[in-house]
Write a protein that binds this DNA or RNA. Structure first.
Length: 861
RNA sequence: GCCCCUGUGGCGGAACUGGUAGACGCGGCAGACUCAAAAUCUGUUUUCUUCGGAAGUGGGAGUUCGAGUCUCCCCGGGGGCACCA
């Protein structure tokens, strides 16, 4: 063995093993193997320029799983790439006059160099960058396939329009009704946009959530809510004096007998019809629009109604006519943009009815209530009743429960030809057009006579022009002198390219398939490669992607499946959402944010290092540039090493909870790394030359052997369940056990060595560098990274004697050591003989003695 | 308003299907080594205590031989959704 330095030099060691892994292509994988496959993927980063602690946590978690599975004998795919289209690149272009491509590629280079010292087990041969034509040309082909399959279409819809920047903004880019950069009030504008038919898969996307057992319930709930399936009925009310009908959607057809009016959206065609020359209505619409769409505005918004001259016939009751209002609470985007209102059983309708003096009629009463009394109280009050109950005052529905009454009402509507049962979804088709330069061009040509014509496949890719300017607002593709001017592929006439680009969620909707076959130049990936690797076994990322990215990717995979490009439907079998990395916040006397590095903490107080002026310590929040509570991963790795940083990311906090970054925490991890080193470099006794198991094990040696084997099982289980914090705790316990050994028992040296080697084998996924270094230093020649995961031996897991706690009336009074197979009667006798038990019982005889084998004895006195 | 998560020492957090509450770490305290400091090591660290014990997992009830864990009600913290008919 090599002589070990007294102190561990992490800089040298970490560099050494990283170089070894790179040169040996240790983590490069093939798409064929006789081992079972395991695909571990972390959400790929946006190349913003610098890695942050969130990245470190994310990629450490994934790396531990990847290394663990690799050791367990899986063929592990653990790739990395760059989600490199997006707005920040264009902002940089505008602010710093640098081309988005240059900015992005330089950032990738920087960030890749920052990832390198983390020691991640990544197959870099599969690296991808989504802004390169080699990547995005495939998604242009996919889009053409979607068009053919009827999964993509163009329609005019309302969008958030920034009048200063002349571009569409995503909902997230609208802050308090204003553009996030320009600060100008956002306008609603109708614009022709490309959509993908995610709604075709609404039911499947919802149903399949139940099969995703390895997803957090939270995410499944959020997607369920987002898809928003509701079952109800469409009803066609006869408009009196007109030929047409008013179509409404309701989830409560059982309350039709309580209907008192209908209400339509201000954007409903009937409302628009009335708008011509009607100043009162125009004023009303203006008033509604002025309320705004912010949460607070809606919360306090008054119910506003405008009575139209229209009336509709009640579908069930002859001769009853209902007035039609235009109301601010009815949304054109949901259902049919029209509702019938039953004030007694809907709070919103109740508020509206009270305000405008409309009738209120109770038609459902709780099971146990006296119907007449209940109805009278309900109709006199201001509180609607929306609970379950029995139909009353409802003719043929009377006596039915809500569910049965809904069915009966729908049957009757169908029989009368005035309605039908229907399912309504909240989710809407995915608008993918963006008036942006730094995205994938939408491969379509607009011809005055042929319309929107797909770019012929042989003309792909449609690449972004390099020579663009950002000196005026709007889309540089639109301003480009020549790029958009082309001829129609159909008729040869002068035509224009589509100048919109795809939403950048497009790229992240299939990158996991690209990693399976990253060099494929024909279809983006070979279906066979995707079949082999997909679905991703463990996907890891932030909860912020619970709906958007994760839903788009699930849809996209289904769409590719429909087009025959892929055989799976669900891209991610297991999903793990990690918590945020947080840090205390600091402010100076003027209330400006301060960097932790500028602050000197002394107990509960803090001062500015520069001049000693007082600093206010704020609550711990997600690390963010704006609050300056960030810690640079590069500096941390530089001063503590990657292993210490990785270990800290895994210790203490469960990975799905927020992690509080502290100096003392990273110090603690660093101390552990040093301690681990001393275990081998400065042992209390010579465990290497004396290691001999011929005489068996005794005392501390036996205890170490037992703990080592128990730890193998415990840590294996913890890692499989992603309970890294408890795995670390158990490894520390084993470390303590080994460190406490004195070398005096039979087999001490052998047990010490076995314990240490076990520890290294179990900790190598977390702290790969030091584990590998010690492994070799104590004489192993096969790299630890290629050593199979340890297996616990049964003989060390069995205990001859067990300690039983003895309770009297549920309170602990002592304990007894008994043989594992001791008879119940003997155990009882021993427990009762304990002085502490005698004291408690006094003269009384025990009423009952409960013996739970290998656990507890409870004496009831 | 609806839905979800969460509440355990000074702090982060352990506690498998109900069975020794506080593993492991951070911080603190005391001591050793040192001229001194750092590092390291040893001990101690839920609270109260008449040193026998007693209380204790946000609060209150319940089920049980036994509850941090299960049930019901209430309170606090965090997050998501929402004029969704």
């Amino acid at each position: 063995m090599t002589r070990m330095e007294e102190r561990y030099n992490f800089r040298e060691t970490e560099q050494k093993w990283q170089t070894y892994w790179n040169e040996n292509e240790t983590f490069k994988v093939e798409n064929v193997s006789d081992k079972p496959k395991c695909y571990v993927l972390e959400m790929f980063p946006y190349p913003s320029g610098r890695i942050h602690m969130g990245h470190v946590r994310n990629y450490t978690l994934g790396d531990v799983i990847a290394r663990f599975r690799r050791a367990q004998g899986f063929n592990v795919l653990h790739p990395m790439g760059w989600d490199s289209f997006g707005l920040p690149a264009e902002n940089a272009a505008i602010e710093n006059k640098v081309h988005p491509a240059k900015w992005t590629r330089e950032n990738i280079k920087t960030m890749k160099a920052q990832f390198q010292p983390m020691g991640l087990s990544i197959d870099w041969s599969r690296e991808i960058s989504t802004c390169e034509p080699e990547y995005y040309k495939h998604e242009q082909k996919m889009f053409l396939d979607f068009l053919k399959a009827g999964l993509a279409y163009r329609k005019t819809s309302m969008v958030n329009w920034d009048p200063v920047e002349n571009t569409v903004l995503a909902n997230e880019q609208v802050v308090d009704g204003c553009g996030w950069r320009s600060g100008a009030p956002v306008e609603r504008k109708e614009l022709a946009q490309w959509f993908l038919k995610i709604t075709d898969y609404a039911d499947d996307l919802l149903e399949a959530l139940q099969t995703l057992e390895d997803w957090p319930d939270r995410v499944r709930t959020m997607q369920t809510n987002w898809i928003g399936k509701s079952e109800g009925a469409r009803i066609w009310f006869d408009l009196i004096g007109r030929d047409d009908k008013l179509e409404v959607y309701t989830t409560r057809p059982d309350t039709l007998y309580g209907a008192s009016f209908c209400a339509i959206s201000i954007n409903h065609p009937l409302a628009k019809e009335l708008m011509d020359g009607n100043d009162d209505l125009a004023a009303f619409v203006a008033k509604c629009n002025a309320i705004g769409t912010s949460e607070a505005a809606i919360e306090t918004a008054e119910k506003l109604g405008f009575l139209t001259p229209y009336k509709v016939k009640h579908p069930f009751i002859d001769g009853v006519e209902l007035p039609v209002y235009i109301a601010n609470f009815v949304l054109m985007e949901y259902g049919t943009g029209a509702v019938f209102a039953c004030p007694a059983h809907d709070q919103r309708d109740m508020d509206f009815a009270r305000k405008y003096g409309l009738p209120i009629k109770a038609v459902v009463a709780p099971k146990d209530a006296d119907a007449a009394t209940f109805a009278a109280e309900l109709e006199a009050g201001n509180e609607a009743f929306s609970g379950d109950g029995i139909a009353i005052n409802s003719d043929f529905l009377n006596g039915l429960g809500v569910t049965e009454a809904k069915h009966a009402a729908i049957e009757k509507l169908k029989a009368l030809g005035v309605g039908e049962g229907t399912v309504q979804f909240r989710i809407r088709d995915w608008g993918v057009s963006r008036q942006r330069y730094w995205g994938c061009p939408i491969p379509v040509i607009h011809c005055p006579s042929c319309g929107a014509v797909p770019v012929p496949e042989q003309d792909l890719p449609v690449t972004l022009p390099e020579d663009v300017t950002f000196d005026k607002p709007g889309n540089p593709l639109d301003h480009h002198p020549t790029w958009k001017h082309v001829t129609c592929p159909c008729c040869g006439a002068k035509a224009q390219r589509e100048t919109d680009t795809f939403d950048t969620f497009f790229e992240s909707s299939w990158y996991f398939a690209r990693f399976c076959d990253a060099d494929n130049d024909t279809t983006g990936f070979d279906p066979k490669a995707a079949d082999y690797w997909l679905p991703v076994d463990q996907y890891i990322g932030g909860i912020e992607h619970a709906v958007m990215h994760l839903l788009y990717a699930r849809f996209f995979t289904r769409a590719l499946n429909t087009c025959g490009s892929i055989s799976v439907k669900e891209p991610f079998k297991g999903l793990f959402t990690q918590g945020m990395v947080c840090h205390e916040t600091y402010k100076d006397e003027d209330g400006s944010w301060l960097y932790p590095g500028d602050v000197d903490k002394q107990g509960d107080k803090a001062v500015l290092i520069e001049n000693g002026s007082p600093v206010t310590i704020g609550r711990s929040e997600k690390m963010s540039k704006s609050k300056k509570n960030t810690v640079d991963p590069g500096k941390i790795i530089e001063s503590y090493g990657a292993d210490a940083a990785r270990l800290f990311m895994l210790s203490d906090s469960p990975p799905d909870r927020d992690l509080e970054w502290t100096e003392s925490g990273i110090d603690g991890s660093w101390r552990y790394i040093q301690r681990l080193w001393r275990l081998a470099a400065q042992p209390k006794f010579d465990f290497l030359s004396q290691a001999d198991t011929a005489d068996g094990f005794d005392g501390e040696a036996e205890a170490t052997m037992k703990l080592a084997h128990a730890t193998i099982n415990a840590v294996t289980d913890d890692l499989a369940k992603l309970r890294f914090n408890t795995a670390v705790a158990k490894l520390r316990e084993l470390t303590n056990q080994i460190a406490d050994m004195k070398g005096e028992a039979k087999g001490s040296a052998a047990a010490y060595r076995f314990g240490l080697e076990t520890l290294l084998q179990l900790i190598v996924p977390m702290t790969p560098h030091i584990a590998e270094e010690i492994w070799h230093a104590i004489g192993n020649t096969t790299p630890l990274v290629d050593t199979p995961w340890p297996q616990a031996e049964d003989k060390w897991l069995i205990n001859d004697t067990v300690t039983l706690v003895v309770q009297v009336n549920g309170k602990k009074r002592g304990s007894i050591d008994v043989a594992a197979d001791a008879a119940t009667a003997d155990i009882e006798a021993m427990a009762l003989a304990l002085p502490a038990v005698q004291n408690q019982l006094g003269d009384r005889a025990p009423k009952k003695v409960i013996v739970v084998p290998k656990r507890i004895v409870n004496i009831v006195g």
